[in-house]
């Protein structure tokens, strides 16, 4: 168990979302189903390392790396 941010995860890794350190980002991601407690999986990382495609339940969402750095996770 280690606490870190989503930006440190590599393709195929899954992690449990703990929180998002940015209010605006939280508003956007929460309403897309990306809320604390959910399991996030890194599906693909685009060439040049950015953006990142994640999956939450059955939704695929793309986020930029800077935003992934604000997402606190617990690796599982």
């Amino acid at each position: 168990m280690s606490l870190t941010t989503l930006a440190t995860c590599t393709t195929g890794e899954s992690a449990k979302l703990q929180g998002i350190d940015d209010e605006q980002l939280s508003i956007q991601l929460f309403c897309m189903g990306c809320i604390p407690g959910e399991i996030i999986t890194i599906e693909r990382i685009a060439p040049f390392g950015d953006p990142i495609m994640i999956s939450v339940e059955d939704s695929f969402i793309s986020i930029r790396k800077v935003d992934a750095e604000k997402m606190r996770i617990e690796k599982i």
């Binding site: 980002l25 495609m53 939704s59 695929f60 969402i61 793309s62 986020i63 930029r64």
Partner: peptide, 11 residues
């Protein structure tokens, strides 16, 4: 306005 690229990728 902050720039995000938060976009849903539909199946």
């Amino acid at each position: 306005e902050r720039s995000h690229f938060i976009m849903e990728l539909p199946i």
